[in-house]
Design a protein around this nucleic acid. Sequence first.
DNA 1: GTCGATTATTGCAGTCTCTGCACTTTTGCG
DNA 2: CGCAAAAGTGCAGAGACTGCAATAATCGAC
Lengths: 207, 207
Amino acid sequence: MPTATPVLGLRERNRLRRTRRVERAALELALEHGVDHVTVDMICEASDISPRTYFNYFGTKEGALIGPAPSVPDESLIEEFLHARGPLAEDLMLLMARSFLATAPDRDIFVMRRTLYAREPALQALQMTRMVGKRQATVELVMRRMAEQLPDLTETEARDEAQLVMSVAMGAFPVVSRLWIEESGDESEVEAYIHEAIARIRRIVSP
Amino acid sequence: MPTATPVLGLRERNRLRRTRRVERAALELALEHGVDHVTVDMICEASDISPRTYFNYFGTKEGALIGPAPSVPDESLIEEFLHARGPLAEDLMLLMARSFLATAPDRDIFVMRRTLYAREPALQALQMTRMVGKRQATVELVMRRMAEQLPDLTETEARDEAQLVMSVAMGAFPVVSRLWIEESGDESEVEAYIHEAIARIRRIVSP
DNA sequence: GTCGATTATTGCAGTCTCTGCACTTTTGCG
DNA sequence: CGCAAAAGTGCAGAGACTGCAATAATCGAC
């Protein structure tokens, strides 16, 4: 009888191993030479993969540097968000944080990535750009939850409101991330950090 | 005696005229065919300019679509911001709005741009990306003002705080922009719209 | 106006990113 | 094993972008 854990097939395991090898190679090269002085061919040579396959995996030159696109959050996480009754912005941030943590990135790759982001802000901007792609979907999600709790808003009002909620959440995210990394790195603390960040925003916008 | 207005030299005027011609051509093409199906060569053909010159002007294919990078705000505007004593986030938004308005973009180009953004969110993301380039500078600015008013913060606290202020301001910006365009388009109203947007954020983060 | 100096525009050659397509190799499975 | 599906690869080519050198337009002094 096979093990109960959903063991990945050979294909999946190969793919994962390869992905990590390429990401690691790309990050090392970028940290050493700077992003602009690294070519896809260099990455491919270093990680023993064909350029064509590289693009099949990552799509763009920067793909291996900024990591996989944030996956659509789990159905269960979404459900939880929709039915939660905490402060909206905090619940949304919790959703974002949890779906990020669910990707369980390699620790060393994660650290290299952060170092690189600090050195090359353009990359971080790129990643943000990609997140904006999810923007529409996220706004819809927030609107769905608002519809259940505040059904007396017009479409436009609701959309504005949802956009603002998302902006607040995304804006507070870097601060939460910094706290999380520097203070503990413990997942259970995330909720507290989120609360803290939102409280600061409240002070900022208080008259 | 020459006129009192600082009349531009022939060079400047040519450059401005050319820029607008290219931007208009690029926007028309993008609105008609979609950004991906427009090539730089097409834009150059339509606006009677050499591709090399195109890149000298705009740097990237999208440059003509998203418009010139937001210039560093006027010294006088910065001074005003630093010494204003209104709510920090609102003053910052006012600074942003005023330095945008100072660029006095063509009305029709402005409208085309907005239409295109709505149709192709990736472009808007790009523009946001470029703004992030100014992020560092803006954070410094906010910190300078905070230093005068709240001198008892540690460096890290101050930086977090400044980042949050900027996030709030940038997040609220689209809403203000929408209000401004749809409601009146009158510059004198901007302040009221900003106030309104901040008030909404306050409600959002209120427990 | 003319002329030399400055600045802008352009053509060209070349590099790099990225894509479609056809072909080969690897993997999963009966 | 042997066959079908999936993944990896090579190749040709389009398109974005850059450095450099040549050309053209503008400016400022005379």
